[in-house]
Design a binder for these strands. Structure first.
Lengths: 189, 189
DNA sequence: GGTAGTATCCTAGACCCTCTAGGCAAACCG
DNA sequence: CGGTTTGCCTAGAGGGTCTAGGATACTACC
């Protein structure tokens, strides 16, 4: 029995790729073992259990995405930063639907995904610097922004916009413009 | 062996209640059979398979929610209608998280949930009557509205807003006001 | 290069969930 | 009241999760 050379990281990477191919819900310990030509039980030396595997995939995806967001936002501010931020999310979700789905699970506050999740919160806040908001307005704005983008991407990925002639790209542009206008003229009270 | 008197509808109803109690993901044929004090195999005379069961729960939830939305929106228009619509969704999701999760699955276009899903599309469109939009703007508005509300509710339910002092209710009100303002002053082009 | 130790992968097996096939009996219906 | 339907059953195959414990490929040290 030659050793395959599995490590937690290689398993996570393979699981992430598998998620994009067959859907995150179908990423099982068994499927992953099959992919490596190995018995199920062998994986449990590297991962705690199935939930742990999924959390690792989520952590990896969150890190990748945060890197892309940070890169694309570099040197931009205001509307450009907003667009870069939003488009990074949407593009990532389109290119890696399985990984994006992985990020949506209930992830434990002490799991491997906790640290990268905080990075996302910071990146989101950084967009709002240009828009001079009071601390409370900032919280509302973050929530609204996150909700809108996440909601749009989820529904688009789910296929909700496919049965209407108008291209999703147009609606997306309109949404971004609307968010920018809203942030610029945030209701005082 | 006394007969329990299961029907597809009673199973669906019980599955919906179970979903709210233990989470939609944990609603299995086995769990449902246990709940009725019956063997797993017995359920398959009433439902096609596990997927069918879940689709039925989704259909039931969609119908219930559409009824509530329609009731709460009756006689209202403009901002009142928008608020009634949005709050109906949010309240339903809060009171019935399992059922709300059921609605988010990929549901086949020919499954039991197809008809109620169309009702929701119609109800959403009816909100926009008051806001005089061009046909294309209407599509963009529906998408943006749906995305924002769905995104907000999903994130709130997921607990994303629990670790910040500001009450979610305040942010929700701000979001509704912002949506109303946006719809009232929809960007011409 | 031999040997001791460790990490990797294995077999075996328990448990849960899904679903099919076929049997028996309760309920209904003429 | 006897026949048919239908509801629930047992039996069992197949797949996923996970633990315990055994065997072997590698590593490191003498």
């Amino acid at each position: 029995m030659p050793r395959v050379g599995m490590t937690a990281d290689r398993l996570t990477q393979a699981a992430a790729e598998l998620a994009d191919e067959i859907g995150f819900a179908n990423v099982t310990v068994s499927a992953l073992a099959r992919h490596f030509g190995v018995k199920d039980a062998s994986l449990y030396s590297h991962i705690k259990n199935a939930k742990d595997l999924r959390a690792r995939v989520a952590a990896q995806a969150l890190t990748e995405l945060a890197d892309q967001v940070a890169t694309n936002m570099a040197g931009r501010s205001g509307k450009d930063a907003l667009a870069a931020f939003a488009n990074s999310y949407r593009d990532y979700a389109t290119q890696h639907p399985g990984r994006y789905a992985a990020m949506q699970q209930d992830l434990d506050a002490d799991g491997p995904a906790a640290a990268p999740a905080r990075r996302h919160a910071d990146l989101t806040r950084s967009i709002l610097h240009a828009y001079n908001l009071t601390p409370e307005a900032q919280i509302d704005a973050i929530r609204l922004l996150g909700a809108t983008l996440h909601g749009y991407i989820t529904l688009e990925l789910q296929g909700s916009y496919r049965h209407t002639p108008r291209p999703s790209q147009s609606s997306w542009q309109v949404a971004l413009t609307a968010l920018h206008t809203l942030l610029t003229n945030w209701p005082e009270d």
